[in-house]
Design a protein around this nucleic acid. Structure first.
Length: 369
RNA sequence: GGGUAGAUGGCAGAGUGGUCAAUUGCACCAGACUGUAAAUCUGGCCUCUUCGGAGUUCGGGGGUUCGAAUCCCUCUCUACCCA
Protein backbone atom coordinates (compact mmCIF):
# COMPACT_ATOMS: atom_id res chain seq x y z
CA UNK A 1 0.00 0.00 0.00
CA UNK A 2 1.34 3.39 -1.00
CA UNK A 3 -0.50 5.13 1.78
CA UNK A 4 -2.08 4.24 5.07
CA UNK A 5 -4.62 6.05 7.16
CA UNK A 6 -5.13 6.07 10.89
CA UNK A 7 -7.94 7.73 12.75
CA UNK A 8 -6.59 9.50 15.81
CA UNK A 9 -9.90 10.64 17.13
CA UNK A 10 -13.42 11.62 16.31
CA UNK A 11 -15.91 14.12 17.62
CA UNK A 12 -19.38 13.32 16.42
CA UNK A 13 -18.90 12.78 12.69
CA UNK A 14 -15.77 14.96 12.57
CA UNK A 15 -12.51 13.06 12.27
CA UNK A 16 -8.86 13.66 13.08
CA UNK A 17 -6.48 11.33 11.36
CA UNK A 18 -3.11 10.81 9.78
CA UNK A 19 -2.20 9.77 6.26
CA UNK A 20 1.21 8.20 5.73
CA UNK A 21 2.66 8.58 2.22
CA UNK A 22 6.01 7.82 0.59
CA UNK A 23 6.90 11.52 0.94
CA UNK A 24 5.73 12.14 4.48
CA UNK A 25 2.80 12.20 6.84
CA UNK A 26 -0.31 14.32 6.54
CA UNK A 27 -2.39 15.18 9.60
CA UNK A 28 -6.08 15.50 8.84
CA UNK A 29 -8.25 17.40 8.40
CA UNK A 30 -5.91 19.06 5.91
CA UNK A 31 -6.09 21.81 3.30
CA UNK A 32 -4.02 21.20 0.18
CA UNK A 33 -2.88 24.25 -1.81
CA UNK A 34 -3.34 23.96 -5.55
CA UNK A 35 -0.26 23.97 -7.76
CA UNK A 36 -1.81 23.16 -11.11
CA UNK A 37 1.21 23.69 -13.34
CA UNK A 38 3.88 22.36 -10.98
CA UNK A 39 3.89 25.56 -8.96
CA UNK A 40 1.70 27.17 -6.38
CA UNK A 41 1.37 30.40 -8.31
CA UNK A 42 3.55 33.19 -7.01
CA UNK A 43 5.21 31.23 -4.24
CA UNK A 44 8.44 29.30 -3.78
CA UNK A 45 8.15 25.82 -2.28
CA UNK A 46 9.85 27.15 0.85
CA UNK A 47 7.08 29.71 1.28
CA UNK A 48 4.40 27.08 0.76
CA UNK A 49 6.05 24.83 3.33
CA UNK A 50 6.40 27.74 5.75
CA UNK A 51 2.64 28.19 5.55
CA UNK A 52 2.35 24.73 7.04
CA UNK A 53 1.39 22.97 3.82
CA UNK A 54 1.96 19.22 3.99
CA UNK A 55 0.67 18.27 0.55
CA UNK A 56 -0.10 20.15 -2.64
CA UNK A 57 -1.91 19.43 -5.89
CA UNK A 58 -0.76 19.13 -9.47
CA UNK A 59 -2.89 18.67 -12.58
CA UNK A 60 -2.87 15.90 -15.16
CA UNK A 61 -4.40 17.89 -17.99
CA UNK A 62 -2.20 20.97 -17.61
CA UNK A 63 1.04 19.09 -17.07
CA UNK A 64 0.59 16.65 -19.94
CA UNK A 65 -0.07 19.58 -22.26
CA UNK A 66 2.93 21.46 -20.92
CA UNK A 67 5.68 20.53 -20.35
CA UNK A 68 4.55 16.90 -20.89
CA UNK A 69 4.35 14.09 -18.35
CA UNK A 70 7.15 12.10 -19.99
CA UNK A 71 9.42 15.10 -19.75
CA UNK A 72 8.63 15.40 -16.06
CA UNK A 73 9.25 11.67 -15.62
CA UNK A 74 12.62 12.04 -17.36
CA UNK A 75 13.43 15.00 -15.12
CA UNK A 76 13.10 12.75 -12.11
CA UNK A 77 9.39 13.08 -11.42
CA UNK A 78 7.18 15.92 -10.29
CA UNK A 79 8.58 16.17 -6.75
CA UNK A 80 12.10 16.70 -8.00
CA UNK A 81 11.08 18.78 -11.01
CA UNK A 82 9.31 21.38 -8.88
CA UNK A 83 11.48 20.89 -5.79
CA UNK A 84 8.61 19.89 -3.53
CA UNK A 85 9.87 16.86 -1.56
CA UNK A 86 6.62 16.42 0.36
CA UNK A 87 3.44 14.61 -0.69
CA UNK A 88 1.69 15.55 -3.94
CA UNK A 89 -1.82 14.69 -5.08
CA UNK A 90 -2.60 14.96 -8.77
CA UNK A 91 -6.02 15.62 -10.15
CA UNK A 92 -6.98 13.51 -13.13
CA UNK A 93 -8.29 16.18 -15.49
CA UNK A 94 -11.84 15.36 -14.45
CA UNK A 95 -12.39 18.96 -13.41
CA UNK A 96 -11.31 20.16 -16.85
CA UNK A 97 -14.16 18.02 -18.19
CA UNK A 98 -16.30 20.59 -16.38
CA UNK A 99 -14.32 23.82 -16.67
CA UNK A 100 -13.35 23.40 -20.33
CA UNK A 101 -16.78 22.11 -21.31
CA UNK A 102 -16.99 24.27 -24.44
CA UNK A 103 -13.93 22.74 -26.02
CA UNK A 104 -14.38 19.16 -25.03
CA UNK A 105 -16.36 16.14 -26.06
CA UNK A 106 -17.18 13.22 -23.75
CA UNK A 107 -17.84 9.67 -24.83
CA UNK A 108 -17.81 6.47 -22.83
CA UNK A 109 -14.29 5.96 -24.08
CA UNK A 110 -12.97 9.19 -22.60
CA UNK A 111 -12.83 12.95 -23.06
CA UNK A 112 -11.39 14.76 -26.05
CA UNK A 113 -10.07 18.23 -25.40
CA UNK A 114 -9.10 20.99 -27.72
CA UNK A 115 -5.96 22.34 -26.09
CA UNK A 116 -6.45 25.82 -24.65
CA UNK A 117 -2.80 26.50 -25.49
CA UNK A 118 -2.56 25.77 -29.19
CA UNK A 119 -5.87 24.20 -30.19
CA UNK A 120 -4.58 20.71 -30.87
CA UNK A 121 -6.70 17.75 -29.85
CA UNK A 122 -5.87 15.82 -26.73
CA UNK A 123 -7.63 12.65 -25.70
CA UNK A 124 -7.89 11.83 -22.04
CA UNK A 125 -9.04 8.29 -21.35
CA UNK A 126 -9.05 6.67 -17.92
CA UNK A 127 -5.97 4.68 -18.93
CA UNK A 128 -4.20 7.76 -20.22
CA UNK A 129 -4.98 9.69 -17.02
CA UNK A 130 -3.42 6.84 -15.02
CA UNK A 131 -0.31 6.72 -17.19
CA UNK A 132 0.19 10.46 -17.02
CA UNK A 133 -0.12 10.48 -13.25
CA UNK A 134 2.25 7.54 -12.95
CA UNK A 135 4.75 9.47 -15.02
CA UNK A 136 4.30 12.46 -12.75
CA UNK A 137 4.87 10.19 -9.76
CA UNK A 138 2.40 11.77 -7.38
CA UNK A 139 1.72 10.10 -4.04
CA UNK A 140 -2.02 10.19 -4.60
CA UNK A 141 -3.59 9.99 -8.05
CA UNK A 142 -7.24 10.58 -8.81
CA UNK A 143 -9.30 8.43 -11.14
CA UNK A 144 -10.68 10.14 -14.20
CA UNK A 145 -14.26 11.17 -13.57
CA UNK A 146 -16.96 13.15 -15.28
CA UNK A 147 -17.77 16.28 -13.33
CA UNK A 148 -21.14 17.61 -14.48
CA UNK A 149 -22.35 21.15 -13.79
CA UNK A 150 -24.84 21.84 -11.00
CA UNK A 151 -27.56 22.69 -13.50
CA UNK A 152 -27.13 19.40 -15.35
CA UNK A 153 -30.34 17.49 -15.96
CA UNK A 154 -31.00 14.27 -14.00
CA UNK A 155 -30.02 12.41 -17.13
CA UNK A 156 -26.70 14.24 -17.32
CA UNK A 157 -26.04 13.47 -13.64
CA UNK A 158 -26.97 9.81 -14.07
CA UNK A 159 -24.69 9.52 -17.08
CA UNK A 160 -21.84 11.10 -15.16
CA UNK A 161 -22.33 8.61 -12.34
CA UNK A 162 -22.44 5.66 -14.70
CA UNK A 163 -19.36 6.83 -16.56
CA UNK A 164 -17.43 7.75 -13.44
CA UNK A 165 -17.95 4.26 -12.03
CA UNK A 166 -16.89 2.63 -15.27
CA UNK A 167 -13.89 4.88 -15.66
CA UNK A 168 -12.84 4.18 -12.06
CA UNK A 169 -12.81 0.46 -12.84
CA UNK A 170 -10.62 1.05 -15.87
CA UNK A 171 -8.31 3.29 -13.85
CA UNK A 172 -7.93 0.72 -11.12
CA UNK A 173 -7.24 -2.02 -13.63
CA UNK A 174 -4.60 0.06 -15.40
CA UNK A 175 -2.84 1.29 -12.27
CA UNK A 176 0.65 -0.21 -11.71
CA UNK A 177 2.76 1.96 -9.40
CA UNK A 178 2.99 0.49 -5.92
CA UNK A 179 4.25 3.78 -4.49
CA UNK A 180 1.17 5.67 -5.65
CA UNK A 181 -2.32 5.46 -4.17
CA UNK A 182 -5.34 5.88 -6.38
CA UNK A 183 -8.47 7.56 -5.04
CA UNK A 184 -11.96 7.05 -6.43
CA UNK A 185 -14.41 9.90 -6.99
CA UNK A 186 -18.10 9.79 -6.15
CA UNK A 187 -20.39 11.88 -8.34
CA UNK A 188 -24.15 12.44 -8.22
CA UNK A 189 -24.66 16.12 -7.52
CA UNK A 190 -26.92 16.95 -4.59
CA UNK A 191 -29.03 13.85 -5.18
CA UNK A 192 -28.44 11.41 -2.31
CA UNK A 193 -29.93 8.53 -4.25
CA UNK A 194 -27.46 9.05 -7.10
CA UNK A 195 -24.58 9.52 -4.67
CA UNK A 196 -25.52 6.26 -3.03
CA UNK A 197 -25.67 4.46 -6.37
CA UNK A 198 -22.27 5.86 -7.24
CA UNK A 199 -20.57 5.18 -3.91
CA UNK A 200 -21.75 1.56 -3.63
CA UNK A 201 -19.78 0.03 -6.51
CA UNK A 202 -16.79 2.28 -5.89
CA UNK A 203 -16.56 1.30 -2.24
CA UNK A 204 -16.78 -2.33 -3.28
CA UNK A 205 -13.69 -1.81 -5.42
CA UNK A 206 -11.71 -1.07 -2.26
CA UNK A 207 -9.78 2.03 -3.22
CA UNK A 208 -7.33 3.37 -0.60
CA UNK A 209 -9.20 6.69 -0.48
CA UNK A 210 -12.43 8.29 -1.65
CA UNK A 211 -13.40 11.70 -2.87
CA UNK A 212 -16.63 13.58 -3.29
CA UNK A 213 -16.51 15.35 -6.65
CA UNK A 214 -19.07 17.51 -8.35
CA UNK A 215 -19.63 19.95 -5.52
CA UNK A 216 -19.08 23.71 -5.81
CA UNK A 217 -19.91 23.56 -9.48
CA UNK A 218 -22.57 26.25 -9.42
CA UNK A 219 -25.06 25.08 -6.80
CA UNK A 220 -25.96 27.24 -3.78
CA UNK A 221 -23.46 26.64 -0.96
CA UNK A 222 -26.28 25.66 1.42
CA UNK A 223 -27.31 22.85 -0.93
CA UNK A 224 -23.83 21.41 -0.68
CA UNK A 225 -23.71 21.94 3.09
CA UNK A 226 -26.99 20.07 3.48
CA UNK A 227 -25.87 17.20 1.26
CA UNK A 228 -22.43 16.65 2.79
CA UNK A 229 -23.21 14.67 5.97
CA UNK A 230 -25.14 11.98 4.16
CA UNK A 231 -22.65 11.86 1.27
CA UNK A 232 -19.68 11.59 3.61
CA UNK A 233 -21.41 8.73 5.42
CA UNK A 234 -21.42 6.75 2.17
CA UNK A 235 -17.62 6.62 2.24
CA UNK A 236 -15.58 4.08 4.22
CA UNK A 237 -14.82 5.07 7.79
CA UNK A 238 -11.26 3.78 7.67
CA UNK A 239 -10.12 5.59 4.53
CA UNK A 240 -9.35 9.24 3.82
CA UNK A 241 -12.30 11.25 2.54
CA UNK A 242 -11.51 14.07 0.18
CA UNK A 243 -13.94 16.85 -0.75
CA UNK A 244 -12.68 18.09 -4.10
CA UNK A 245 -12.44 21.74 -4.95
CA UNK A 246 -13.92 23.09 -1.74
CA UNK A 247 -13.98 25.78 -0.66
CA UNK A 248 -14.47 28.85 1.51
CA UNK A 249 -13.46 28.81 5.19
CA UNK A 250 -17.16 28.41 6.01
CA UNK A 251 -17.43 25.42 3.62
CA UNK A 252 -14.43 23.75 5.25
CA UNK A 253 -15.68 24.18 8.80
CA UNK A 254 -19.00 22.64 7.81
CA UNK A 255 -17.41 19.87 5.75
CA UNK A 256 -15.06 18.83 8.55
CA UNK A 257 -18.09 18.57 10.79
CA UNK A 258 -19.70 16.34 8.18
CA UNK A 259 -16.75 13.94 8.29
CA UNK A 260 -14.48 15.01 5.43
CA UNK A 261 -10.70 14.94 5.85
CA UNK A 262 -9.05 16.51 2.82
CA UNK A 263 -9.74 19.69 0.88
CA UNK A 264 -8.24 21.63 -1.97
CA UNK A 265 -9.31 24.86 -3.55
CA UNK A 266 -7.86 27.58 -5.74
CA UNK A 267 -9.66 30.16 -3.68
CA UNK A 268 -6.87 31.14 -1.27
CA UNK A 269 -4.34 31.52 -4.06
CA UNK A 270 -6.51 32.98 -6.79
CA UNK A 271 -8.26 35.35 -4.42
CA UNK A 272 -4.91 36.26 -2.91
CA UNK A 273 -3.62 37.25 -6.34
CA UNK A 274 -6.76 39.31 -6.74
CA UNK A 275 -6.25 41.24 -3.49
CA UNK A 276 -8.80 39.30 -1.47
CA UNK A 277 -7.69 38.02 1.92
CA UNK A 278 -9.41 35.54 4.21
CA UNK A 279 -9.41 36.20 7.93
CA UNK A 280 -11.19 34.78 10.94
CA UNK A 281 -13.71 37.63 10.68
CA UNK A 282 -14.32 37.28 6.94
CA UNK A 283 -12.97 38.59 3.69
CA UNK A 284 -10.80 41.68 3.36
CA UNK A 285 -10.41 43.37 -0.02
CA UNK A 286 -7.00 44.99 0.22
CA UNK A 287 -7.56 47.11 -2.87
CA UNK A 288 -10.35 49.02 -1.16
CA UNK A 289 -9.66 52.65 -0.27
CA UNK A 290 -10.37 52.18 3.41
CA UNK A 291 -7.01 50.42 3.84
CA UNK A 292 -4.93 53.21 2.35
CA UNK A 293 -3.74 54.55 5.70
CA UNK A 294 -4.34 51.47 7.85
CA UNK A 295 -1.09 50.65 9.62
CA UNK A 296 -2.53 47.54 11.27
CA UNK A 297 -1.61 44.08 9.98
CA UNK A 298 -4.09 42.23 7.80
CA UNK A 299 -5.00 39.97 10.73
CA UNK A 300 -3.76 40.84 14.20
CA UNK A 301 -3.44 37.33 15.64
CA UNK A 302 -1.96 35.74 12.52
CA UNK A 303 1.64 34.60 12.71
CA UNK A 304 2.25 34.30 8.97
CA UNK A 305 5.12 36.18 7.35
CA UNK A 306 2.74 38.66 5.78
CA UNK A 307 0.88 39.57 8.94
CA UNK A 308 4.00 39.55 11.09
CA UNK A 309 5.79 42.08 8.89
CA UNK A 310 3.47 44.25 6.81
CA UNK A 311 0.58 46.68 7.22
CA UNK A 312 -2.71 46.78 5.36
CA UNK A 313 -1.58 50.16 3.99
CA UNK A 314 1.50 48.52 2.46
CA UNK A 315 -0.52 45.66 0.96
CA UNK A 316 -2.98 48.21 -0.42
CA UNK A 317 -0.08 50.04 -2.00
CA UNK A 318 1.41 46.88 -3.52
CA UNK A 319 -1.85 46.01 -5.26
CA UNK A 320 -2.42 49.52 -6.58
CA UNK A 321 1.15 49.64 -7.85
CA UNK A 322 0.65 46.16 -9.34
CA UNK A 323 3.75 44.89 -7.62
CA UNK A 324 4.12 41.10 -7.73
CA UNK A 325 4.85 40.97 -4.02
CA UNK A 326 1.19 41.76 -3.30
CA UNK A 327 -0.17 38.53 -4.83
CA UNK A 328 2.67 36.59 -3.22
CA UNK A 329 2.05 37.94 0.27
CA UNK A 330 -1.71 37.45 0.14
CA UNK A 331 -1.39 33.94 -1.31
CA UNK A 332 0.96 33.21 1.54
CA UNK A 333 -1.39 34.57 4.16
CA UNK A 334 -4.45 32.87 2.73
CA UNK A 335 -2.77 29.47 2.57
CA UNK A 336 -1.39 29.88 6.08
CA UNK A 337 -4.86 30.88 7.27
CA UNK A 338 -6.56 27.89 5.64
CA UNK A 339 -3.98 25.43 6.91
CA UNK A 340 -4.10 26.83 10.43
CA UNK A 341 -7.89 26.65 10.35
CA UNK A 342 -7.66 22.93 9.62
CA UNK A 343 -4.99 22.42 12.23
CA UNK A 344 -7.15 24.14 14.84
CA UNK A 345 -10.10 22.04 13.73
CA UNK A 346 -7.98 18.93 14.31
CA UNK A 347 -7.11 20.07 17.82
CA UNK A 348 -10.75 20.76 18.55
CA UNK A 349 -11.71 17.28 17.35
CA UNK A 350 -9.03 15.66 19.48
CA UNK A 351 -10.24 17.77 22.42
CA UNK A 352 -13.76 16.53 21.69
CA UNK A 353 -15.02 20.10 21.27
CA UNK A 354 -15.53 20.43 17.55
CA UNK A 355 -19.15 21.64 17.64
CA UNK A 356 -18.18 24.53 19.92
CA UNK A 357 -15.17 25.31 17.75
CA UNK A 358 -17.26 25.27 14.57
CA UNK A 359 -20.01 27.36 16.09
CA UNK A 360 -17.68 30.09 17.30
CA UNK A 361 -15.62 30.19 14.09
CA UNK A 362 -18.73 30.39 11.91
CA UNK A 363 -20.20 33.11 14.13
CA UNK A 364 -17.04 35.18 13.79
CA UNK A 365 -17.24 35.15 10.00
CA UNK A 366 -19.00 38.16 8.58
CA UNK A 367 -20.35 37.91 5.06
CA UNK A 368 -20.69 34.73 3.02
CA UNK A 369 -17.23 33.34 3.57
C1' G B 1 7.22 93.09 -29.39
C1' G B 2 5.87 89.77 -34.01
C1' G B 3 4.13 84.95 -35.75
C1' U B 4 1.94 80.05 -35.40
C1' A B 5 -0.76 76.28 -32.96
C1' G B 6 -3.85 75.30 -29.07
C1' A B 7 -7.52 75.47 -24.61
C1' U B 8 -12.79 69.04 -24.12
C1' G B 9 -15.04 65.53 -17.92
C1' G B 10 -8.99 63.80 -12.22
C1' C B 11 -5.05 63.04 -16.39
C1' A B 12 -3.95 61.92 -21.58
C1' G B 13 -6.73 62.34 -25.82
C1' A B 14 -11.02 61.63 -29.80
C1' G B 15 -14.98 64.45 -31.65
C1' U B 16 -15.12 69.77 -35.76
C1' G B 17 -23.33 72.04 -37.01
C1' G B 18 -28.13 67.79 -34.94
C1' U B 19 -27.59 60.49 -33.98
C1' C B 20 -22.87 64.19 -27.83
C1' A B 21 -23.55 63.76 -21.17
C1' A B 22 -19.51 63.58 -25.28
C1' U B 23 -15.10 57.38 -28.42
C1' U B 24 -10.88 55.38 -26.01
C1' G B 25 -6.94 54.66 -22.48
C1' C B 26 -5.15 55.66 -17.64
C1' A B 27 -6.32 56.87 -12.69
C1' C B 28 -10.11 56.26 -9.21
C1' C B 29 -14.55 53.49 -6.74
C1' A B 30 -17.07 48.93 -5.96
C1' G B 31 -18.08 43.78 -6.89
C1' A B 32 -17.06 38.63 -8.44
C1' C B 33 -13.65 34.48 -7.97
C1' U B 34 -14.73 27.05 -4.89
C1' G B 35 -10.59 19.41 -7.99
C1' U B 36 -6.83 27.26 -11.83
C1' A B 37 -7.71 28.74 -19.89
C1' A B 38 -7.84 33.79 -14.04
C1' A B 39 -1.56 38.59 -11.04
C1' U B 40 -8.31 37.68 -14.18
C1' C B 41 -13.18 39.32 -15.09
C1' U B 42 -17.59 42.58 -14.32
C1' G B 43 -19.89 47.11 -13.13
C1' G B 44 -19.50 52.37 -11.85
C1' C B 45 -17.01 56.98 -12.55
C1' C B 46 -20.87 65.79 -13.90
C1' U B 47 -25.42 66.49 -10.45
C1' C B 48 -30.21 64.68 -8.91
C1' U B 49 -33.40 60.38 -9.57
C1' U B 50 -39.60 57.20 -7.63
C1' C B 51 -33.91 54.20 -12.36
C1' G B 52 -38.63 55.81 -16.64
C1' G B 53 -35.74 59.97 -16.74
C1' A B 54 -34.56 65.26 -15.28
C1' G B 55 -30.94 69.23 -14.94
C1' U B 56 -26.36 71.69 -15.88
C1' U B 57 -21.40 70.85 -19.21
C1' C B 58 -16.45 71.02 -23.75
C1' G B 59 -11.20 78.24 -21.06
C1' G B 60 -14.50 83.42 -20.02
C1' G B 61 -17.99 86.72 -22.44
C1' G B 62 -20.87 87.93 -26.70
C1' G B 63 -22.97 86.48 -31.48
C1' U B 64 -24.89 83.37 -35.94
C1' U B 65 -28.50 79.22 -36.22
C1' C B 66 -34.64 75.86 -35.42
C1' G B 67 -30.15 73.61 -33.21
C1' A B 68 -23.14 74.94 -31.26
C1' A B 69 -17.91 71.15 -27.97
C1' U B 70 -18.10 72.07 -33.32
C1' C B 71 -19.07 78.50 -37.14
C1' C B 72 -17.96 84.14 -36.12
C1' C B 73 -16.13 88.25 -32.73
C1' U B 74 -13.59 89.33 -28.38
C1' C B 75 -10.94 88.53 -23.88
C1' U B 76 -7.78 85.37 -20.90
C1' C B 77 -4.27 81.66 -20.68
C1' U B 78 -0.67 77.87 -22.69
C1' A B 79 3.13 75.81 -26.07
C1' C B 80 6.57 76.53 -29.88
C1' C B 81 9.22 79.76 -33.42
C1' C B 82 11.29 84.72 -34.71
C1' A B 83 13.18 89.37 -32.58
Amino acid sequence: MAISFQLNGTCGTARAGNITTPHGDIPTPIFMPVGTQATVKGMTPDMVAACGAKIILGNTYHLTLRPGDELIRDQGGLHKFMNWPRPILTDSGGYQVFSLAEQRKITDEGAKFKSHIDGRMLELTPEKAVEIQENLGSDIAMVLDECPPADGTPEVLRNAVRRSIHWAERCQKHHTRADQAQFAIVQGGCDLQLRTECAGPLVAMNFPGYALGGFSVGEAPEKMHDALPACAALLPHDKPRYLMGVGTPRDLIIAVGAGLDMFDCVMPTRSGRNALAFTSTGQVRLRNAKHRRDSAPLMSDCTCYCCANFSRAYLHHLFHAEEMLGPTLLSLHNIAFYIRLMSEAREAILANSYPEFARSRLAALQGPN
